[in-house]
Amino acid sequence: MTGFRPGRLLLQLSCLLIAIWLVAPTLVVIPMSFADRKSLAFPPQGFSTQWYANFFSNPQWFGSLVVSLKIAAMVAVVATVIGTMAAIGIERLKTRAGGIIRVVLLTPMIVPGVVLAVGIYAVYLDTRLVGTWTGYVLAHTLLAIPFVVIAVGANLAVFDERLETAAASLGASRLTTFFTVTLPLILPGILSGALFAFVTSFDEVIVSLFITSPQLKTLPVQIFSSMTRDADPTVAAVGSLIFLATTLIIGLGLIIGLRRRGA
């Protein structure tokens, strides 16, 4: 591994550049969040933590975070239950109908968000669901189900169905078999599906912009409207906080995963 190799150096350099290109936009918000003037100029001037304080004390900001977390949690539960049941059904159908149903369930991932948003908005106007909890949860669940179907489906593909036959021979009913054998073994898929569903909802902005109301606003909508109104560095503070939180969660997940594999 010694000696000068120009090809290798070039490769390392280009990797580094790509990495910077990928991470830089995320990192830029961190210095901006500590700016002491109400401006989103880069590089920022001075230093203050007032935007963090503003985020936690201003009900507009903090309230929208709570709304987003509540909706995301509900979406995670509903989408995971529906998506898991759908994935199992598709897996067990084993006919062409299963493939068709799968494609139908995955369409929200393929259809452009704006098109979906217009459709949802039109339906919501008639059914008075605009700006309601139910409205948000329904719309976000629709968008999250494909992720659950994919995650659970991947797990089911490697699940050995013969274990269910064995459980039956040992005296377990279909329902007992599901809860004692199938569920524990596809749990990793269900959990990652739930995580995807949570993030999909928490992160969703297009549909939410259409169905939002001044009384019930999610965090991405609040960020968006704040950006269009004025240059409030609170946006950068929110971005930094979310970045910190996701880094912690993913890091923790990696550590747990590595430790379990090592055991």
């Binding site: 039956a168 021979s169 005296g171």
Partner: peptide, 9 residues
């Protein structure tokens, strides 16, 4: 049903 037959497999 299989789970009520009490047969070892």
């Amino acid at each position: 049903p299989a789970h009520k037959r009490n047969i070892g497999v």
